[in-house]
Design a protein around this nucleic acid. Structure first.
Lengths: 157, 157
DNA sequence: TCATATCCTAGTGGACTACTAGGATATATG
DNA sequence: CATATATCCTAGTAGTCCACTAGGATATGA
């Protein structure tokens, strides 16, 4: 038995927490050191993560004294799915179910009739439904709102 | 970026394929060697997998010439979730969301208000909804039937 | 007896995670 | 200008895990 396969990486968790913290700030910037302390993230590791986020355009930075990081896009345009794919790679239980990094299963005879694939396609769709429709803003907002999910979770296949 | 985090293990895929093949047989038994060839699974690896399945009571075996393996439980009582947990461990994107192996996130201040947790709870619930309600029989049956999903996918939280 | 099975334990190469380390470069302030 | 404070960039590393392979002990039917 594996430890936990479906688990997201620590790095992705840090990235999401950092982005949420930046969204909390709203307009002001914060240094990596301060952010690291506030969110209990190893500082040097956080720097690498912020570099990834910057490379993707989610975050902007300023160097030197009084420098720091700030969100570059509105919090309601950044989805959990986007961040997760950026840091952790494809969201797909099988390579043959990935949209951004499709690869056939090497030992699979016929993809169209694969019964394992058919079931995990449902899993993938439902996970994506949540991740691609939930934004940082959703996660922050009003505790009253129940983080709702919309229609058509399982696609049309 | 990771290769693919949400991916199930090759071992779990083999286990599911093996069980489906056993369910196809229906009543008759088959040797590991034959099953391995049919499903393109490394023979020795498959033996280990079958041992796991046997230990869990899903499969029975007979030794010696004319020995082999057979399903021990009806195919409509074996869920994908059960097999996945058996082979791959907990189905939870965060340790604090696992039901069978709960552990708090070490760097998490307050679980109740954790915004990352809140979102991934939805992911976990929707994945479990599929996996715990889909049986081997469902995966085998009639191509007409669309592998439907029932109500209340997101729990009551 | 002998071929054919399952059963059981070890071990291994390669990949990946979660960091740490060290310093180069840029910027505000005195 | 000097200095403190930041970001930026590249390497490296201990530990863990996956996906097997290897080798043989044990049981069973012919």
């Amino acid at each position: 038995m594996r430890d936990d396969p479906s688990m997201i990486s620590q790095k992705a968790k840090y990235a999401l927490r950092a982005l949420l913290a930046l969204a909390d700030l709203d307009a002001v910037s914060i240094s990596a050191a301060e952010l690291a302390e506030r969110e209990r993230i190893p500082r040097k590791f956080l720097e690498q993560i912020l570099a990834d986020l910057k490379r993707d355009g989610l975050v902007q930075s300023r160097r030197g004294a009084a420098g720091g990081y700030a969100l570059l896009k509105p919090a309601d345009t950044i989805t959990f799915g986007h961040v997760l794919r950026l840091i952790d790679g494809p969201i797909a239980p099988l390579p043959c179910l990935s949209r951004i990094a499709y690869r056939p299963c090497e030992d699979c005879e016929d993809e169209a009739t694969c019964r394992v694939r058919k079931v995990f396609a449902l899993v993938a769709n439902s996970a994506r439904a949540v991740l691609d429709q939930t934004t940082l803003a959703d996660a922050i907002a009003h505790p009253g709102r129940p983080l709702g999910l919309p229609q058509d979770i399982f696609g049309t296949a």
